[in-house]
């Protein structure tokens, strides 16, 4: 292969050298592609164990594999009623499947799973958490005592205001002042149907 390098730095090849270089490059690319595909079966379906990450610490806290209990609808329903105490304001289920840096919600989840494995029902598990942490562990306050005010004061206030508003409006409607525009005989105004149609049109065109 003859390669002539001129003073201006450009590379000049004859035809044979060019074709040889091109074929070599092509084979090199093909070979490297084969090499890559042969190296990748770890990530293909049905093949060997999963490889280690270059730097696992970058992926956050190490996690345990998901178990059947993690996806159990009853466990999930219980956890959605329990407040995670890490300060996130989320329920245990949402926190443990959202903020994977939190260590509180996974521990509470483990406790729920353990209690369920002991044969406790949902309400019993929740009672156990309330005994342990107080009622603040519940995502919504229990409906008893002063908490009833929490649930019913807004609705009662709205109903009471609605009743008062209705009474006031009825009184206003009854005592509305007479029309200051002097009434003129209706005879020339049109038939009731025409008046109704006109009223409808005015209603429609009003802003």
């Amino acid at each position: 292969m003859t390669v002539t390098r001129r003073h201006d730095g450009e590379l000049h090849l004859n035809r044979r050298a060019f074709l040889t270089l091109g074929a070599g490059s092509f084979l090199g690319v093909v070979a490297s592609w084969r090499h890559a595909t042969l190296q990748s079966p770890d990530s293909l379906p049905g093949t060997g164990p999963s490889g280690r990450l270059w730097d696992p610490a970058r992926a956050g806290r190490p996690l345990e594999p998901v178990t059947t209990a993690d996806n159990d609808a009853v466990i999930r329903a219980i956890e959605k009623q329990l407040h995670c105490t890490c300060g996130c304001n989320l329920d245990v289920y949402t926190c443990r499947t959202t903020d994977f840096t939190c260590t509180v919600s996974p521990a509470m989840h483990e406790q729920v799973v353990d209690l369920a494995a002991q044969g406790m029902t949902g309400p019993q598990i929740i009672d156990q958490f309330v005994r342990q942490h107080g009622v603040a562990i519940l995502m919504a306050p229990p409906k008893r005592g002063f908490n009833l005010a929490g649930y019913f004061v807004p609705s009662l206030a709205i109903i009471a205001a609605g009743v008062v508003l209705t009474l006031v409006l009825r009184r206003w409607a009854r005592t509305a002042a007479p029309d200051p525009v002097p009434a003129r005989p209706l005879a020339a105004a049109g038939t009731p149907e025409e008046l109704e149609r006109l009223r409808g049109e005015l209603d429609r065109l009003s802003v």
């Binding site: 304001n89 009622v135 995502m139 306050p141 005592g145 908490n147 929490g150 649930y151 807004p154 206030a157």
Partner: peptide
Amino acid sequence: GIAFSVLWGTLFPILSELVQGTKVTVGPPF
């Protein structure tokens, strides 16, 4: 009414602590 209800729910933990001496959580279910 909705504004009052949202305000009431937001402040209810403080109110509960004042009245009952225990703090409650008022979350989405409420």
